[in-house]
Nucleic acid binder design. Sequence first.
RNA 1: GGCCUUAUGGUCAAGCGGUUAAGACGACGCCCUCUCACGGCGUAAACCCGGGUUCGAGUCCCGGUAAGGUCACCA
Length: 546
Amino acid sequence: MDWNKLADILVPDENVKPLDYYEALYPERDLPKGARVTRLAPSPTGFMHLGNLYVAIANERIAHQSGGVFYLRIEDTDDKRKVEGAVEVIHSSLKYFGIAFDEGAELSGNYGPYYQRQRAEIYHAYAKDLIRRGLAYPCFCTEEELEKTREYQTENKLLPGYYGEFAHCRNLSEEEILANLAAKKPYVIRLRSQGNVEVKHPFRDAVKGEITVTENNQDVVILKSDGIPTYHFAHAVDDHLMRTNLVIRGEEWLASLPIHIELFKALGFRLPEYGHNCSIQKMDGDTRRKLSKRKDPEASLTFYREEGYHPLAVRTYMMTLLNSNFEEWRLKFPDKPLDEFKFSIGKMGKSGALFDILKLNDVSKTVLSGLSETEMFDFLKDWAEHYGSDAEKKHFSDREYMLKVLSLCMGIGGKKRRKDFVSAKQAVSMLSYFFDDTFAPEYAFRYSPEVVRSVLEGFEASYDSADDSSAWFSKVKAVAEENGFASDMKAYKANPDAYPGNVSDVAEMLRVAVTGLSNTPDLWTIMQILGKERTLSRIDGAIASL
RNA sequence: GGCCUUAUGGUCAAGCGGUUAAGACGACGCCCUCUCACGGCGUAAACCCGGGUUCGAGUCCCGGUAAGGUCACCA
């Protein structure tokens, strides 16, 4: 067989340019020594997975920390998975979490196009080179034939796939190929693998460390029958031409690493460094599995927006999973920007971590407690405008009032910040009792109506909104005493049975009456914010409900 | 099934031949306190199982076992 002739038939010269042309068009990048060129290469499915963010953060950090480039390439080689507007979703959802690309799809850049479908010519040129060198060949096998082979292999416990004796088209004669071509039989281009599965090589993975790679022996498809490359081939060509020097990707790719190694070798490309990060998992019954797009709402990036998790909280949580020494750093420097943390690939975990929403919640509380009241206002308002009820949206129209409420609830001005807020959704709902239109108390008094009435009326009689906090509390104590409750905690603890309760029980009655809740921030401040009139009318309402 | 990877408290994890085996989240208890939240203090809780190597093994080696990933003209 004359490979040159075959190559010219399969890929005519007028369709492609010489390889030198592409090499010159996409030269080595002029970057400082040690600079990493990394990328995110998602399929445009319109769905952004938590794992996308996870791996994006790692790639972005490494690139930018090293003075390199982080770019976006769209792997749209599978038409079936393509969804309109998906690239916009990729940009907007990552941007929400503070991840931005230096170049790539829908951005400028000298290494484009960044959509693989638009790079067909380039792939064809390199495929032609492979054919010419006898390292690739056309395969006319039908789906049915392939399926039959697979069945045979499975039945006989043989390695499944297209290799060795099962690679029917591998040694087709020139006449056969020409005849098939003349008959317009559809065909794919396969790699003529030179590998041997008996041979293993040590390999250094940036996150896994020393691993073993078994040689590939599969004649994998590199160009599908529509002339579009498979992922493997596109990966090799693109990452070479785009001058990627570090590929951090999910560990589901580890299994196809042998294919990629052979492809890079066959094409004469220098292999980039690889780092295979583990996936985020979840407990399903008593087994763990990858976070699933279909089963787990928290797998989707939109989940965090809808729930009102602060982007910084999600990012911070991702960092705790990504780098084991991050939490220690965060504890030491609570106020430093995330990007000052020295991210290292070596500190990435080797085994998959379970997604822990409780931990996320804790991180979120800390992040939110670090916001100023105006930042909190903007954050909550933005969430409410997108996802809140009409009433909740309206709560943000009186900025001054909301700011006062937020200061109280965040403990601003106090010695210690409060950490009540986990998410915007929860915070907005928690704030509802400050607004008459959403104040819907379900009074749960723990004392008899008579006692409650007496306490509430006693308080109303003495309440003066001009009192400061301590004067106010003295009056609460007085009301307690008038009703037989202990006002001195020590006395109460010494002899609890002598009283129906103590000041805190009295305060609880007031709290329930005014807010409908038994747990709230400082009651005096709440009454100050509500004002005398509303405070008293709420207490009246509570009395009326008895 | 083949190949690859992983294995320390419930979870995330330090550890890299000698430690009372860190820390964080969660749980529980105490303190502070008008409740809650915050904060402080404390308790319970772990090296998958066997064999080696070694004076000494969570750490190194070999076997199991278990879990995960992957075996497409999907990425």
